[in-house]
Design a protein around this nucleic acid. Structure first.
Length: 555
DNA sequence: TTGCAGTCAATATC
DNA sequence: GATATTGACTGCAA
């Protein structure tokens, strides 16, 4: 049935998900005669028949369907890389190996392509071409990624970091040369890799590249060469610029311009980067804890109170949610590795198992750990929280109301899970607001609390409004505590895909001593995040459940 | 329209 | 100078 459907109503490539593309790749392979026998083990392990390398894949694909990068460029020739090693029929397995064993480097990048135009090796300086991938190879890589078996992202980054540090190679060079990413991205990637199963096709690319690079026996030398070339180029430029006024031409490629001497005048046009003051961040965090997904109205309120642009507030929430998620993952991994005999360091794998399902799960588990206690702890006790003056008293006072208002009713303490949806919170808001102002305001935000802000919106989620947030922001407080609780309740249901996991997560959720207790102080911040994350999970759950079902959720 | 993933690039920090 | 952090942006999916 699926085949029939697919053959009669194929979706355009651009609309297909990674998974959805799989059948088409298979078909293309099959058409090309590459898919020999058997099934392509997409997941890797088996050895299957086939697939040369991605590269090869690529070609076929291109011929047949893809538009065409007209330029296979010379470099194309290079592309052979990937496949070269394993020629013919290999299956994904081969891919795996490709990635895992030392095979001939895929130079996709570095060498491979660069050669093209620039290459004149020595020439210049401009070593460049930062981006390794270009047409052909890029595609190859994509294919490779598509067919790649699960990789241990954590292990890969770990190894990369080691190699880089051992050889005194910088992230910038590595990123621009091998990954085609900027230093900041590389840093982030190396420090907080996401588990393979949570990465999109695009997100996996850097990991595949890293793995390939690790497998390249000459990887270090190549980078070193690049480094040298860069240096040379830099010096050259520098000299020339010194002698001449400023010849600086924006060197086309690469790397260097970053630092070198290019003054770049026009930059003036750029708008200055917004830097949030610590108080503002705190306020936003509090707001987040109250409501990870604030309504437009709430956002607006926050923006006003903090004297920020709404877009800034929106961005902040997006970034915060996303970063918290990642941190949770990392934590989980680390915890896992510790817990688990540390044997395998492969987080991804671990994560995979651990939190196979949705992030929610994984998250839950984690959070759960600190869950209830954690949440509170942090807030109240947490370093950051503590800091806040408001926290203390205010919270206490607030506590009551908040409970209600808080979307997350469940709050650990009081309201038992029963309170299904967060809705209740709303009203509460009303009262809470009073205290709001202070915190938020500090720096720029003059308008403190707009007192009793608006009335609470109807919707649970949306419901809580600025008032609540502001309150929390301002006073900080109380809410958070709840968070932990609520979430806990919610989470379980949410994620809990696998029974096993579920169990564990539940455990943690309920703050089994071990977890919570175990955590060291430094976790506080993490706890906070986790707590917040729980909120978001809850939020999503609720959303998903769409009001009617809350009832069913038993925790 | 909203949320997210992935990045960039300006800053901050080491 | 290298690395880490983080606000903003782009593209995509639901």
């Amino acid at each position: 049935g699926s085949v029939s459907d697919m053959l009669s109503r194929p979706k355009p490539w651009s609309k297909l998900t990674q998974k959805g593309r799989e059948p088409f790749i298979r078909m293309q392979l099959w058409l090309n005669g590459e898919l020999g026998q058997g099934v392509l083990p997409v997941q890797g392990q088996q050895q299957g028949p086939v697939l040369h390398s991605v590269t090869s894949l690529q070609d076929p694909l291109q011929q047949g369907c893809v538009s065409s990068e007209s330029t296979p460029k010379t470099s194309a020739s290079c592309s052979p890389a990937p496949e070269s090693p394993m020629s013919s029929s290999e299956s994904v397995k081969s891919l795996t190996e490709l990635v895992q064993q030392p095979c001939p480097p895929i130079e996709t990048s570095k060498d491979g392509k660069p050669p093209e135009p620039s290459d004149p090796p020595a020439s210049d300086s401009q070593p460049t071409t930062p981006l390794p991938l270009s047409g052909h190879s890029a595609l190859s890589i994509q294919e490779l990624v598509a067919m790649s078996p699960e990789l241990d992202t954590y292990g890969i980054t770990k190894r990369v970091k080691e190699v880089l540090t051992d050889n005194n190679l910088g992230q910038r060079l590595f990123g621009e040369t091998i990954l085609g990413l900027t230093q900041g991205s590389v840093s982030d990637l190396l420090a907080r890799p996401k588990p393979w199963h949570k990465l999109s096709l695009k997100g996996r690319e850097p990991f595949v590249r890293m793995q390939l690079w690790l497998n390249d026996p000459n990887n270090v030398e190549k980078l070193m060469d690049m480094k040298r070339m860069e240096k040379k180029a830099y010096m050259k430029r520098r000299h020339s610029s010194v002698s001449d006024s400023q010849p600086c031409e924006p060197p086309s490629v690469g790397i260097d311009y970053s630092q070198g001497a290019s003054p770049q005048p026009q930059h003036q046009l750029k708008k200055p980067r917004v830097v949030l003051a610590p108080e503002e961040k705190e306020a936003l965090k509090r707001a987040y804890q109250q409501k990870p997904y604030p309504s437009p109205k709430t956002i607006e309120e926050l923006a006003t109170q903090l004297n920020l642009k709404t877009s800034t507030v929106i961005n902040w929430f997006h970034n915060y949610r996303s970063r918290i998620r990642r941190e949770l993952f990392i934590e989980e991994i680390q915890a896992g590795s510790q817990g688990q005999a540390g044997a395998s360091d492969s987080p991804s794998a671990r994560s995979g198992r651990a939190a196979p399902g949705s992030e929610g799960d994984s998250c839950d588990g984690v959070e759960a750990a600190e869950g209830p206690g954690a949440a509170d702890a942090e807030e109240s006790g947490g370093p950051a929280a503590a800091a806040k003056s408001q926290g203390g008293p205010a919270e206490a006072a607030a506590a009551p109301e908040e409970q209600e208002e808080a979307p997350r009713p469940a709050e650990k303490a009081q309201p038992p899970p029963t309170s299904g949806p967060p809705a209740a919170a709303d009203d509460a808001d009303g009262e809470g607001r009073a205290r709001a102002a202070p915190a938020a305001t500090r720096p720029r935000a003059p308008r403190t609390a707009r007192g009793p802000c608006q009335t609470p919106p109807p919707r649970p989620a949306a419901g809580e409004d600025a008032a609540t947030l502001s309150r929390s922001a301002a006073g900080g407080g109380p809410c958070r505590a709840r968070d932990g609780a609520d979430r806990s309740s919610a989470l379980p249901s949410t994620s809990a895909p696998a029974a096993a996991r579920r169990a564990s997560s539940l455990q943690s959720l309920f703050g089994l001593p071990e977890a919570a207790g175990a955590r060291d102080s430094r976790d506080n911040p993490l706890r906070k995040k986790k707590a917040a994350n729980l909120n978001s999970i809850i939020h999503r759950l609720e959303k998903a459940a769409s009001r009617e079902e809350p009832i069913e959720w038993e925790f």
